[in-house]
Design a protein around this nucleic acid. Structure first.
Length: 413
DNA sequence: TCTGGGGTCCTAGGACCC
DNA sequence: TCTGGGGTCCTAGGACCC
């Protein structure tokens, strides 16, 4: 029998801010970005805010309208990452098997310490007290015998709580909950389940797996197993985080993009960030994808596989523009947001078959390598491609610093 | 002003090869 | 020459997570 904890830091960004600025403690606080970025908000003090009708994840402008004395703070990801690291150190002290899930959640496998769920509960209390005392933040911790129920348990009661789900009590705790409380059952799956009269996790558990398979493909089997407490997926060991599969950036621009010039400029900004991050991760990739969102918020995308692996900014820009034009995306103009990413990643020094039709351009390689080193020392704005400088209304976009949240927060130096 | 941005995985259809 | 099966790669799109 395994003993697995899932720890969830409550209102993580807001709690981090309040911990270092006690003066905002009793005010409705929003953290999450400048208005131009149109970030969602996270509220730290729900009681007062609620009296204004403010809800979590409400757009900033709406919340401000309802609650004029809302305190709005710009995000400080460097700070959140450092708090997240300290949390991680606490977890690491309990077990060698810890898997982080974003900045504010972790699974901890205590099985190797010959523990029971009861000692798991004691460990949860220990973590909560330390987090409160040392970092000023509260945790909700779930204790169970598999990852799915441990996560469910950490959501069950918050903030600052421990919930235990065992083989004896899961039917009374888990089964009455709405199906969408379970991980991997999002909005679309919930709607489809409801259509068939399936509303609770217990309903999912009692549905024949073949039915679920017909409706949801192989995920159907997974939902069935999860609902019955049969999840056997392992907690990934420290330092064994899954390899990165893709690296990309996208942005909503300060004004709509009107023509090809605008699009090229923004792709250039994004590609500079993407190629820098690919180099930082010591990778190269072979598949370039773009996505565009028009003024009706319709999204479409396209991708192409390159003749060889690359980390070059120039290759990414050229591929993005080639895709954009060849797939007829010009007709979607004006555009509100675009993105570019690279996937099919391999280590930078992985050997590859060289093609005589697409030889490596050693001059560009040397140039971009030099630019990379300059930026590493002086920041991404130290060197810029000329076409960006002509468009000063896009100059403020800095995808690398502002939109890179989940990039290897623990192993990136 | 009307859901930001970064990711993962799955599926289905088509092309191509043996 | 035709037909079919199996495998792999590529692409577009959808669903999910934080």
């Amino acid at each position: 029998m395994r003993t697995i904890l899932h720890s969830d830091a409550n209102s993580f960004y807001a709690s981090c801010e309040i911990a270092r600025r006690p003066e905002i403690k009793n005010k409705p606080v929003s953290v999450g970005g400048s208005e131009e970025m149109r970030h969602g908000i996270i509220l730290a003090s729900n009681t007062e805010a609620k009296s204004y009708g403010v809800k979590t994840a409400m757009p900033l402008w709406q919340a401000r309208k309802l609650c004029p004395n809302l305190t709005i703070l710009p995000p400080d990801f460097k700070h959140y990452i450092s708090v997240s690291r300290k949390l991680r150190e606490m977890y690491d002290g309990l077990s060698p098997v810890v898997e982080n899930f974003g900045l504010d959640e972790c699974w901890i496998d205590l099985s190797s310490r010959d523990t029971t769920l009861k000692t798991g509960k004691e460990a949860a209390l220990y973590l909560r007290e330390r987090a409160k005392k040392e970092l000023g933040i509260t945790l909700s911790v779930g204790v169970s015998y598999n990852k799915v129920f441990a996560k469910l348990a950490s959501d069950y009661k918050k903030p600052d709580a421990t919930t235990l789900i065992s083989e004896d009590n899961y039917k009374s705790i888990v089964w009455p909950l709405p199906a969408s409380y379970m991980i991997f059952i999002g909005n679309k799956t919930r709607q489809k389940l409801n259509k068939y009269g399936i509303r609770t996790i217990g309903d999912v558990a009692k549905t024949p797996p073949e039915c679920l398979k017909n409706w949801f493909g192989k995920l159907g089997y997974m939902h069935h197993a999860n609902a019955n407490g049969l999840d056997r997926s392992p907690v990934m060991k420290t330092g064994h985080e899954a390899d990165v599969k893709s690296i990309g950036n996208s942005t909503t621009t300060p004004r709509d993009m009107r023509d090809l010039e605008d699009v090229r400029c923004v792709f250039t900004i994004l590609a500079q960030s993407v190629s820098t991050r690919v180099r930082e991760a010591y990778l190269k990739g072979k598949c370039v994808s773009i996505s565009v969102r028009d003024t009706n918020l319709n999204i479409s995308g396209a991708q192409k596989t390159l003749p060889r692996y690359t980390a070059l900014c120039r290759d990414i820009i050229d591929s993005a523009m080639e895709l954009f034009i060849s797939k007829g995306f010009e007709k979607h103009l004006p555009l509100r947001s675009i993105g570019v990413k690279i996937s099919s990643l391999v280590p930078y020094d992985a050997p590859e078959q060289l093609s005589m039709f697409s030889p490596v351009d050693t001059k560009i390689e040397a140039l971009e390598s030099a630019v990379f080193n300059i930026r590493k020392r002086y920041g991404i704005h130290a060197v810029q491609l000329g076409n960006i400088l002509l468009k000063d209304d896009f100059l403020s976009i800095n995808p690398k610093e502002e939109h890179t949240v989940h990039t290897l927060p623990f192993f990136n130096g």
